[in-house]
Design a binder for these strands. Structure first.
Lengths: 230, 230, 230, 230
DNA sequence: TATGAATGAGATTTCATTCAT
DNA sequence: TATGAATGAAATCTCATTCAT
């Protein structure tokens, strides 16, 4: 009986690159880009250090491609949150649907970590790629949200007292940042607020504001944007 | 990864070290912690690499102390935003005062960069210190804001349809994150929205919500879909 | 450093390997042995890196065989320079014929480059093979030339005031080295002396010396340079 | 009694750089540039690998500076060979003096090895520096020799049947190349011709040529000044 | 036979840290 | 106190070589 020849390694030219990219994202996101040794990435991907260089020219190139391979996935699909017939839905409902979908996504630990990587080291190490990530990510979301808001204003569902674009930025940031913090804080037991509470409250505030809603109200200094009622 | 040291508040001599700490913050914030060579810090402080080790035990210790020496300054003074007799002011006014003060602060480039450092590498490299920074920073602000909100609710100035604590987190995050992005994006010419517009819109949305105001409005927290009017 | 292997004259298959050997000589000569990656050789030969190992055991072995496959060609054919009935020709004419043939050969860029490789890295990396190359190359030429000289002396055509062997070495080196430099210098535009001038002058000096000649002298084929008296 | 504190290393900021350069020349020349590990250079200089990088930016830079620090020394001093009142000496005597001085220098093993490095890898790796070395070395020598020759022609001491510049090149190359080979061959026992024999024969041939002189000619080796005719 | 994915030893380079001065 | 020369561990990267296919 011949000894079962177990190959020391196997060829997987199709899967390897993506596996390496996945491992890279995972490890870079978790440990930081500079703090990560290529060996850790290799190990996470189940290959040896040298193999990385068969597919990628350098650590930086690995980071670049790893992020690019995810940029679409990161924020993509968020627009789909409203379903097929979203144009017919009331703006508030569309908003809720889109933001909930985004929130869910941003709260996933790996998304949050990657987000941290992008906002942190990437903006320093690879500003160009950071730009791409920004445009493909937060900026796209807030543009999308901004359109829903403007749409709602046009249809008379939303007030015209606010700048829809600036409002979208505020909203998106509020949720993104909270999602990011959530991960860190909850992993460390510094916070046990249920994520849903944050989201629902944010939406409530967003829709109705915080002021008591009665007949009349003492509004101080109405800002730049349009006023409503008398 | 270092074995999560408990931050030591020991500071050795009194005179020069501060220059080193200032230089360290500046350089670490700008280039990233890992990416910074101690030589760069030394140069920025006008001393030589070796001297750093006269005052600090290690690069990590330098980072730790540098951040600690700033943590008070970073978020301190924000509470003072409302002036002396703030308890007597309407909640909305106090809110505006406090948030404006914070916003101004967060928008300063060096604050934003330091923020990036904290949210990015610090949370990985020195989680313990990150916790301290969180508690002394954003968490303190949102607690403070939360109190203003609850206060307003009690006094009948604000509605009770939202959780004041969760709302405070959303608000603070929205502004902090925008301030952070602002710096990066504007430095790269990716964005030219005037900071004030963001702030004013955020406040407007915060106070009044985005919905077209009807006659009267539901006072209780609507957990599910947003419904408007009665 | 390798343990000075005795060159093996084994050559495995017959067809493709020669292409590899040719490519190897070309690339090693141009870029240097150590500086050349096997991949470059493979590419030049139109195969892939792995294939080299089907035919050769190692980089060193490739170099060895590549050089061996050329050593004959390098200096071979030089003796033929004088034609068939050279023994009957005057020594001076035979010398001229042989040296001209050698000079032509040494001035070819690829020969010069290979020469550089041999005199440079080969003497360090594979001293044994260097010895072989020396014996098959310059030493053989200078022995051949030495014989012509001694022959001439015996026949009374040449003076006996010089050691024919030592003289042959000097002559051969003078031409080889100039040929080698020529290539490098002319490729870089550092020198534009026509090769022929060098050769003819060398021969003139060799035959007649540089001193002002006494009465008259039987000069054969006076080269480009100036003639003296009648 | 305190244990005699023997420092683990000592500071020698003045000597270090030159020591490193010397070690570099030595090791690079002996083993080849590519084949040498920086560790070997460090060891030869009595420091550690890292120290090299305190003084030099890279391996290439080390090679560059090492060679530059020698280029003057390599071929410098050769012109001085003829002593102070050389202009008054017969051309043949000056020639002999200069060439003997050069020959002595080129025959030193370390010079020969360095020469091999320059003609070999340097011409490939650092062509620019190779040019400098050529100009400062062989080209300068052959220009100098060429001037002596032309001078001798003008003064009627030497014949005008040869191009002095081209002749100088041939002569210089003949001696340089033989010196280079000598080292290699003799170290390996492939050659036991006494260096002096080569030199004296070369000079004899150079002065008188190899042809049988018409009338009579000195048969014995003329050790000192060149005398012409009988 | 040929390929090219994968390896692994080793080379260059970096840099926090030490220590003689 | 301050310097900066020197260290040494480790990181990135290279590439000859192996081996599954």
């Amino acid at each position: 009986m011949p000894p079962a020849k177990v190959p020391r390694w196997i060829r997987r030219p199709e899967e390897r690159p993506q596996e390496l990219l996945d491992a890279a994202i995972e490890v870079f996101s978790t440990n930081g880009y500079r703090a990560t040794r290529l060996e850790q990435v290799a190990e996470a991907a189940g290959v040896t250090k040298g193999s990385i260089y068969y597919y990628f020219d350098s650590k930086e190139e690995l980071l670049t491609q790893a992020l690019q391979s995810r940029i679409g996935a990161i924020f993509g699909g968020i627009e789909g949150g409203g379903g097929g017939r979203r144009a017919e839905m009331p703006a508030a409902d569309r908003l809720r649907a889109v933001l909930r979908s985004a929130w869910k996504h941003w709260c996933k630990p790996e998304t949050a970590r990657m987000h941290r990587l992008i906002m942190g080291e990437l903006s320093i190490e690879l500003p160009q790629l950071f730009d791409v990530a920004m445009r493909a990510g937060p900026m796209r979301v807030w543009q999308f949200v901004g359109e829903i808001l403007r749409d709602g204003q046009k249809r008379g569902e939303l007030g015209t007292h606010f700048d829809p674009h600036a409002a979208a930025r505020f909203i998106v940031s509020g949720l993104m940042h909270q999602a990011l913090l959530q991960t860190d804080l909850q992993e460390r037991g510094l916070d046990d607020t249920p994520p849903d509470r944050i989201f629902e409250t944010a939406l409530e505030v967003l829709l109705h504001g915080i002021l008591l809603a009665p007949a009349k109200r003492p509004t101080k200094k109405p800002p730049a944007a349009g006023r409503r009622r008398g």
